[in-house]
Computed example of a mutant assay.
Amino acid sequence: MMVWTNILVPVLGTASDAQPLSVAKALAAPFDATISVVFASPSASGLFNWAYEGGFGVTDVAVAAIQEETERGRARCGELLTALDYPKTSFETVTADDWLGLRSATRLADVVVWERSAAGGHGFFASAFQQILLDERRPAFIADRPPDVGGTIAVAWDGGREASRALRRSVPLLKKADRVVLLTVPHAMARPCDGARAVLYLDDQGVRASTDVVHTHGDASPAILDAVRKMDANILVAGAFGHPRLQRFIFGGTTQYLLESLVRPALFLSH
């Protein structure tokens, strides 16, 4: 039986970390999973090398200030975890150099929770998001608020490799849903696919699912999100970034469209 046992959240030690931590709690609680909190700090040596190459001087005082701010960030993480009031957590500190430490930490995580800005290519974690989703192939979860895991979940389905991986990896989540609907957009599909095989697969996993055909002759992404809104789905499961890297995905739509749309279901993305 597939279950989620580890939900990972990269944090910076700022007040904004409270939001992804609350999302992680909503995901972890139904599974009694551990929330792994990974605090990413800039290394003093990395900053020194950057400044030296740029012709800037970095004094011992500046390095000490960086280390002090790192300690303050770590302390703020502790305060946030206390406020989160969740019984199963772990805490780890990594440096931001090439994201090697964070990448390693995510390899045994079932899902990584990200802020929407990072998933949209902005901010400190933007590069880490792409590396971990694409290279480490760890599923990403992005939400503006804690999701209702027991509500309706929509799955963007075209029978492709990325959509299939997203479906398989989301099975534990789908098992918690009250309703699961596979959305297909025939006009935007590269191959015939009615979702019947996916429905049978989910039935074997103990998940009852239905299909909904989305009719549109324009961009498929707005039509999918409109269908998600009409069915009042809490979460959209989708395959992300087909080959080659960073190309358009989900029946011709883009990650950016999903992230910036005013219709904002929580997103479970898998590559």
Results as ranks from 00 to 15, higher is better:
L202K: 03
A188F: 06
Y201Q: 03
V185A: 07
A198T: 03
H187I: 03
A190Q: 11
A188I: 01
L200K: 12
D204C: 02
H187T: 03
D203Q: 11
V180N: 07
V185C: 04
L183N: 11
G195H: 14
P186M: 05
L200H: 10
M189C: 11
P192E: 12
V181I: 11
C193G: 10
L182M: 09
R197S: 00
V180E: 02
L183I: 01
K176A: 08
C193A: 14
T184W: 08
D203A: 12
D178M: 14
R191V: 15
T184Y: 03
A190K: 07
V181T: 14
A177Q: 01
L202I: 10
A196Y: 08
H187N: 12
R197P: 00
A188Q: 01
P192N: 13
T184I: 15
A188R: 04
A198P: 01
M189V: 05
Y201F: 05
A188H: 01
V199M: 06
M189W: 02
P192A: 10
Q205E: 07
P192C: 03
G206F: 12
M189L: 07
A196V: 02
V199A: 01
L182T: 04
K176L: 04
R191T: 14
R191H: 13
D203Y: 12
A190R: 04
A177M: 06
D194S: 04
T184C: 15
D178G: 15
Y201M: 11
A177P: 04
M189R: 12
V199S: 04
D203T: 13
K176I: 13
P186A: 13
A188N: 09
L182I: 13
L202G: 11
L202F: 06
L182W: 07
A177D: 04
Y201I: 12
L183W: 04
M189F: 00
H187S: 14
R179A: 04
D204H: 14
L200F: 07
L200G: 06
P192Y: 15
L182Y: 14
L183K: 02
R179L: 00
V199P: 02
A190E: 03
G195N: 10
V181A: 03
V185I: 10
V199C: 00
L202R: 06
G206Y: 09
M189N: 15
V181K: 13
P192L: 05
D194F: 08
L183H: 01
R197W: 00
A198V: 05
H187F: 14
D178T: 15
V185Q: 05
G206P: 09
R179I: 02
R197L: 02
V180F: 02
G206E: 02
Y201R: 09
A190N: 05
L200M: 10
K176G: 02
D194Q: 00
A198I: 03
D178N: 12
L182G: 03
V181N: 08
P186V: 11
M189Q: 09
V185M: 06
A177R: 08
V185W: 06
K176C: 09
V185F: 12
Q205N: 14
A188E: 11
D194E: 02
A190C: 11
R191D: 15
